[in-house]
Amino acid sequence: HMTFVALYDYVASGETDLSFKKGERLQIVNNTEGDWWLAHSLTTGRTGYIPSNYVAPSD
């Protein structure tokens, strides 16, 4: 899985979304859904959809 880092805080707007904090590391499970990607937080262990423009590839 690709690892990304959150650029901003995001508060989930629905049950399927994943809240995260700036700097949180996320594994992308599925990024074929356009602007919303299914991600797994390496910080909280939770999985949900995130806005793709809130994250950047982590080196």
Rank of each mutant, 00 (worst) to 15 (best):
A12C: 05
S41P: 00
V11L: 08
L26H: 00
E15L: 13
V29H: 15
L42R: 04
G48I: 01
R25K: 13
T3L: 14
S19E: 05
G48P: 00
D59K: 10
D35S: 12
P57D: 06
S41L: 03
K22L: 05
F20L: 07
G45K: 07
T32E: 12
A12R: 05
A6K: 00
T43E: 13
G45M: 06
E24D: 12
I28G: 03
P51I: 02
T16A: 11
E33I: 13
I50V: 11
N53I: 10
I28D: 00
T32H: 10
Y10A: 01
D35R: 09
E24H: 04
T32G: 10
A12S: 09
T32M: 12
I50G: 00
A39I: 04
F4E: 01
W36I: 07
T32K: 11
N30A: 11
R25W: 14
L42F: 08
D35E: 13
N53A: 14
V11F: 09
P57A: 11
H1G: 14
V11K: 09
E15Y: 10
K21E: 08
T43G: 06
W36K: 09
K22D: 01
N30K: 09
A56Q: 11
H1V: 12
T47Y: 10
M2D: 10
H40R: 15
K22R: 11
P57S: 08
G34I: 11
A56F: 09
L18D: 01
D35L: 12
H1C: 14
S41K: 02
F4V: 14
T43P: 03
R46H: 08
P51H: 06
N53D: 09
G23V: 00
W37M: 05
P51Q: 05
A56M: 12
R25E: 10
A56R: 11
L26I: 07
Y8M: 10
K22C: 06
Q27N: 08
E24T: 03
D35V: 11
Y10T: 01
D17N: 09
R25G: 04
L38H: 04
A6C: 07
K22H: 05
P51T: 01
V5M: 07
W37G: 00
F20R: 00
G45W: 05
D9T: 07
Y10C: 04
Y8P: 00
Y8R: 09
A12T: 04
F20A: 01
P51K: 06
A39Q: 00
Y8G: 04
P57Q: 10
I50R: 00
G23K: 02
A12P: 05
L7H: 03
M2K: 12
S19H: 04
T43Y: 08
T32P: 09
D17P: 03
V29I: 15
G45I: 01
L18N: 02
S19R: 04
I50F: 03
D59L: 13
A12H: 04
S52R: 12
Y10N: 02
A12M: 04
L18H: 02
D59T: 14
A6W: 00
D9P: 04
R46I: 07
K22M: 08
H1E: 12
F4D: 00
L18R: 02
S13A: 13
G14V: 10
F4C: 09
R25L: 15
D9H: 04
S19A: 07
L42A: 06
A6S: 05
D35N: 12
Y49F: 11
D17Y: 14
Q27C: 15
A12F: 02
R25P: 07
G23T: 02
L42E: 08
K21T: 10
T16W: 15
L26Y: 01
L18P: 05
T3P: 06
F4P: 00
V29D: 06
T47W: 13
D17E: 15
I28T: 03
L26P: 00
A56Y: 10
E15W: 09
L42M: 10
S13Y: 10
V11R: 07
K22G: 03
T3K: 05
F20T: 01
D17F: 15
Y49M: 11
K22E: 06
A12V: 04
P51W: 05
G14N: 14
W36H: 06
Y10S: 01
S41N: 10
R25S: 08
T43W: 10
Q27D: 07
W37Q: 03
L7G: 02
H1K: 11
E15Q: 11
T43N: 10
R46W: 07
R25H: 12
A56P: 04
I50S: 00
V5T: 10
T16L: 14
Y8I: 06
H40F: 15
S58K: 08
A12L: 02
T16E: 12
G48A: 04
A12Q: 06
D59G: 15
K22S: 07
L26V: 04
W37K: 04
Y10H: 05
E15A: 15
K22A: 11
G23N: 05
W37D: 01
V29L: 15
L38T: 03
V5Y: 09
Y49L: 12
G48V: 02
A6G: 06
D59Q: 12
N31S: 13
S52K: 14
A6D: 00
E15S: 12
R46L: 14
D17V: 07
S58M: 15
S13Q: 15
D17G: 14
D59P: 13
T47E: 07
T16Y: 15
H1Y: 14
M2E: 10
N30E: 11
K21I: 09
T43Q: 10
S58V: 15
S52W: 09
F4I: 04
D9M: 02
M2H: 12
P57V: 10
E24F: 01
N53P: 06
N30M: 10
W37F: 06
L38G: 01
H1M: 12
T44E: 03
E33R: 13
D17W: 08
A39R: 00
D9L: 01
Y49N: 05
A56E: 11
A39V: 12
M2T: 13
S58R: 06
L26G: 00
T16Q: 13
R46N: 10
D17R: 12
R25D: 04
R25T: 12
M2Q: 14
D59R: 07
L26C: 01
W36M: 10
F20N: 00
D17T: 08
S13D: 08
Q27Y: 15
W37S: 03
S52M: 09
Y54T: 05
G23S: 04
E33A: 13
V29M: 15
G48M: 02
V11N: 11
F20G: 00
Q27G: 05
V55L: 08
W37V: 08
Q27S: 10
A6Q: 00
F20Y: 01
T47K: 08
T32Q: 14
T16V: 11
F20K: 00
S58P: 10
N30V: 09
G34Q: 13
L38E: 05
E24S: 02
T16G: 14
V55S: 03
T32S: 13
L18V: 06
V29C: 13
E33P: 10
I28A: 08
H1R: 08
N31H: 11
S41D: 04
P51Y: 05
V5E: 06
N30R: 08
H40P: 00
L7K: 06
K21D: 06
L42I: 09
S52H: 08
S41R: 02
L38Y: 11
P51G: 01
V55Y: 04
W37L: 07
T32I: 11
V11P: 05
Y49Q: 05
H1A: 13
R25V: 15
T3N: 07
K21Q: 11
Y8L: 08
T43H: 11
A56I: 14
Y8V: 07
Y49D: 02
E33W: 11
L38S: 02
E15C: 11
H40E: 09
R25A: 08
D9E: 07
Y8D: 06
K22V: 07
V55R: 01
R46Q: 11
N30Q: 10
S13V: 15
A39M: 10
T16R: 13
T47D: 07
G23D: 05
S19M: 06
D35I: 11
I28N: 04
D35A: 12
S41E: 02
K21V: 11
T3Y: 15
A6E: 00
T43K: 11
F4T: 04
A39N: 00
E24R: 00
A12G: 11
V5G: 01
K22N: 03
G34D: 12
A6H: 00
I50L: 04
K22Y: 04
W37C: 04
D9N: 07
T44R: 03
Y49W: 15
G45L: 07
D59W: 14
